[in-house]
Structures are given as C-alpha cells and as structure tokens.
Design a protein around this nucleic acid. Structure first.
Lengths: 165, 165
DNA sequence: GTCGATGCAAACGTTTTGCACACTG
DNA sequence: CAGTGTGCAAAACGTTTGCATCGAC
C-alpha cells in the first residue's frame, strides 16, 4: 500500500479542465455520473472564487445553500472531480488538503512560520523539473505539494544573528 | 492558527545535528532534559539505519526492546529531538510524516504512482531556492516536504498513447 | 526532593467506509 | 426501472493532550 496516488497528472481519462460548472457537469454525465444538486453546488463553490479551500470550507459553502449536504458527499465528489481532471488538490504543509480548479494550476510556497501561502507560477519549478527528469527520470508535478520555507517577515523576526550556512 | 511550524530551519537553538546517540543525549541534558531509556532507544533507532521512518515504525522498533514505551512518548520525544535540531521530519505526500537525522538532510522525490521515494541532494533545489528568494523573498527549506511526480516506470505503464496537449 | 518524562486513555481533526434510502436518467 | 448518489454513523488514521505516577539528577 502506498496511498500516494489519487489523480493522474496528464489526465489519461481524456477528461481535463472544465471552463464552467456546466462543462464540468457535462463531463461528469459523460462518464456515467449524474447531475445532482450537491454536485452542482460544489462545482459552483469551486468556480466561484478560485482560492484554495479545504474540503471543510467547501462543505460550509455548499451547506450555506443546502444544509443537508454531508461532508462525506463533499469528499466523494471532490474525489470524482479530481479523477475527471476538473480539480486538483495540494498538500500545504500540515493542514488539510486544499482543492482548486485544474485550470488555475500553480505552485505553492508555504511559510512554516506564519502559514502564509504564496501562489507561484509553475514556471518557478522549471529548473528543478528539468534536473529531476534528467538525473532521476522523474517528472515533477508542481501542483500537488507545497514548498515549505520561510518568508522574509518571519526570517527577520527570528534570525537576527543566525546567518545560515 | 496556522499550525505549520514545528522546528526552525537554521536552528536558532544553537543545538544542531548530533553525530551519535550519546552526543544527542548530551544535547538533551544540556537543555534541561533527562536521559531516559525511551529516549536512548529512540535515538538508537534513529541512528541505526538512517532510512525514513514514521513515528509508528520508530515506535515499533523501540517497542521491540521496551514494549512498554507508548506511542505518545515517541511523538513527544520526536518533537523534542526536532526542536533540538537532532532530527527533521518531512511530509511525503499523503502518508504520515517521516523522521530522519538532521545530518542526513536531503530532498525527497515521491512517485504518486508507486510511492517510491528518492532521496536527492538538496543541491537539486538550488535554482528553485535562488529564484524563490529572489522573486518572493522566500527561503526554501528543501528537507521538509516531498516533491511529488511520476517515476519513469509508472509513466511508461500509463502514458502509452496519451500524449500531453 | 524537585522537576521532567512516562503510560494510559481519551480526544482531536481529517478522511473513508458500509449501509439503506432517495434520486437521476 | 436500473443504477448512481446521498445522508448518516461509525471507524480509520495520525497525532495531541490531561492527568497521575514514575524516574532522573
């Protein structure tokens, strides 16, 4: 058991990012899924303000419109949406996974001090990706994890004297 | 609440990596801690086979010698050892955190397909680190997270026909 | 003797699962 | 009607915490 895979980068499903709620819903239908209100509501939440949100936050947004929707339904739908390539999730340090549209894929820099998260262009990982591929036959997926470190503010607050080596 | 910090890279504690169990123990004592058998056993496990191990695995190793040692003790000791700079932990995708000696710090490439983990020189992150610092005032800690992606074997098994686009 | 560490059990937060019922198509 | 999705409750998983006791120095 590895438990590390959930979605395939490269979308062998043939699905891919959807540009709207309806497009995503059509994709779901295409794959034998059904259009339910939970699903539509979740997609609306996802398309509506493309910030990262945890399953819990998304659940709250959905529940604002339909209080009966259970968190487990959110997780199940999130999972399927990811399988279809509509969304991706990333791990931002210690907290819960966050989800966002696949079309707005980007890298993440998370400060270990204050938790601030910076969205950065995948571009930033270009050199790393090249070298990982080159030296290790490993194709980096820059959207699925956060790069941890220290923002300037936190560094200044702490390291007044500790010059790294 | 951010919940992302646990250890400070750069060790403002003045502590740092220890070269042996005894050295680490001395460090613990220096900081007002006491030398207990759980602690010694845990350190032995850590120094003995420097692979990454989860708290649970380390607990199992310690318990092989002292069955009474409780997992919570492992977590507490792991935490303190990390605070002292003796060990570091990293998040390898979805699984539990893994711990290893600070002296053997390196980066991690984890395959989303098969879970294989590659230990890579921190060197690999040089360019990323430089650019993150340069463009975002962000100092990368290359040891605290895993870079997720796809190893060659998994790519070949899947992508036979799916040419990205 | 003092203060820190430990065992235990229980709680925590996030996510998954089994099941019967409701709904979509 | 067939089959998928849902709510619910409970469990799984990794980790943390309160507390009384035990142990190191």
């Amino acid at each position: 058991m590895v438990g590390v895979s959930r979605s395939q980068p490269g979308s062998p499903e043939g699905a891919g990012p959807a540009a709207s709620v309806d497009e995503a819903l059509a994709l779901v239908r295409r794959h034998g899924g059904r259009v339910t209100s939970s699903r539509r509501l979740l997609l609306r939440a996802l398309f509506d303000g493309q910030r990262h949100r945890s399953a819990e936050e998304l659940a709250a947004e959905v529940q604002a419109q339909a209080p009966d929707v259970h968190p487990s339904t959110i997780y199940r739908n999130l999972d399927e949406l990811e399988r279809l390539g509509v969304i991706v999730h990333s791990h931002l340090g210690h907290g819960p996974a966050t989800y966002h549209l696949a079309s707005s894929a980007h890298g993440h820099l998370v400060c270990e001090g204050c938790g601030t998260m910076l969205e950065v262009p995948s571009d930033l990982f270009g050199e790393l990706a090249r070298r990982a591929d080159d030296q290790f036959d490993f194709v980096v997926d820059p959207h699925h994890f956060a790069v941890l470190g220290r923002c300037r503010t936190c560094r200044e607050q702490e390291g007044s004297g500790t010059d790294g080596g």
